[in-house]
Structures are given as C-alpha cells and as structure tokens.
Design a binder for these strands. Sequence first.
DNA 1: ATTTAAACTTACTATTAGTAAGTTATGTAC
DNA 2: GTACATAACTTACTAATAGTAAGTTTAAAT
Lengths: 111, 111
Amino acid sequence: MLENNKQKDCQNICNDFHSTIEFLGKRWIGIIIYSLFKGPKRYHEILENIPGISDRLLTERLRDLEKEGLIVKRILTTPKRKVEYELTQSGKKLEDVFLTIVTWTQAKNDS
Amino acid sequence: MLENNKQKDCQNICNDFHSTIEFLGKRWIGIIIYSLFKGPKRYHEILENIPGISDRLLTERLRDLEKEGLIVKRILTTPKRKVEYELTQSGKKLEDVFLTIVTWTQAKNDS
DNA sequence: ATTTAAACTTACTATTAGTAAGTTATGTAC
DNA sequence: GTACATAACTTACTAATAGTAAGTTTAAAT
C-alpha cells in the first residue's frame, strides 16, 4: 500500500514533468518566453526578434501560451492602439528553469 | 562594438537554449531520460515503463539520444545477449534541470 | 526442430509545422 | 477624404514529423 503510494507519487511527478517539458519544448515556445523575460513586447517585436518564426505559428504559440496561463495579452488603445504580450507571475518564474538549461548546455558544449 | 558583442553573447545563449529545449521537448525524449535516472535499462523495460510510446518511436528517440551523446547503447553477450541503455555523464547532469522543471510545475499547479 | 522473445525495420496514415496569400482595422501623407 | 502603409491576424495549402500495424532477424528455451 505504501509502495503503491510511492509509485503513484513517482508517476505524478513523472507526468508533471512530461507535460511541462513537452509544452516548453513545442517549437518556438521556449524562445518566445525567453524573449519576454526583459519585459512586455508587441506582436511585431517578437516576430522580428525571433529569426525563422512565421506569423502564423507566432499567433498559434501565443494562443497556446495564453491558454497555459504563462502570458497575458493586453490591448492598449491610448494614445494609439497596440497589442502587447507579457509574462504572468508563473511565466516569469520560468527564468530559473531556463537558467539551469543554459548552464547545462554550456557545460556540455565546453567538455 | 561592445554592444555588438553583448548582443552576440545573448544570441548565443538564446540559441543554446533554443536548441536544447527543443531537443529535450521532442516527444518522449524527456520521459526516456527520466526513466534512465535510476540506472541503465533494457529496451523492453523502457518500452513497458512509458505508457503510450510505440516501439518505432522508442527506437528513433534512442538513436536521437545516442547521437546527442546523452545515452550509450551497450550490447552484452554474457551470460546471454541483451541490449542496455545508460545515461552518459552529460545525460546524468540533466537531473538538476529536470528537478527545477518539476518544482516549477508543482508551484504552478498549487497556486 | 519449433516456438518464443527482444530488438528492431518497413510501409503506411494522421497530426503538426511551415509557406503564401488574403483580411480587417487603424494610422499617416497628400 | 482618398490612397497607401502597418499591425495583427486568418485561411488555404504543402512539407515534415508522429503514430500504427505488420514484418524481419537473431538467439535462446522446450
């Protein structure tokens, strides 16, 4: 019974991990989040900052990120209309995760 | 010029991050690595440990992981033939990365 | 000698990514 | 106030990747 619970805990951790890594690893998701760490950006700014991404996929990924609660879309009307995307609290907390990934990658490339 | 270098550094970090996260996020890659943290496993053990993965994709992902230098394939012949997969040093170091991801996921789900 | 199992391969279908062109709403130049 | 430009999408289509199903090879077990 205890063993069983342990296994369940492990499975939960495993599933948590699985869904998160596959979401973050979806093409462009990581780099879009990355580009928003410095602060909110407009649709076009993101598009120009990320070489290779298409506008269709950018829109799709922004919707994915909104749905996951990692970014918010903000439509400003004054002084003129513009659309901005900003990381939520939970999105901002990904910076720690991203740092460990960069560190690991560099260690790997150095050796 | 300094600015330019800074930008280049940033681009390198960004590219490092981008390629790593997209590789780790490829379907099944994360969970395969995860299942090898406890020690080397046979092809069939991995297959049975990961619900939903097909044998074709498992083979493909194992080749991907070998190519990236994260696992090694070992063919043992004594006492009887068996194939084992084990994480390399660099593969094992991913445990830190995976921990931050699990932590982040749990914090997100709690709030 | 025949069957069984592990570890793949090959051929095919379904899903997802990427490209190209079109749309709408607002903003700017004349 | 008409023409042109730009931001932020949408729609339709093609290319690439994932997933399914069935077949192959090698070695061992009965």
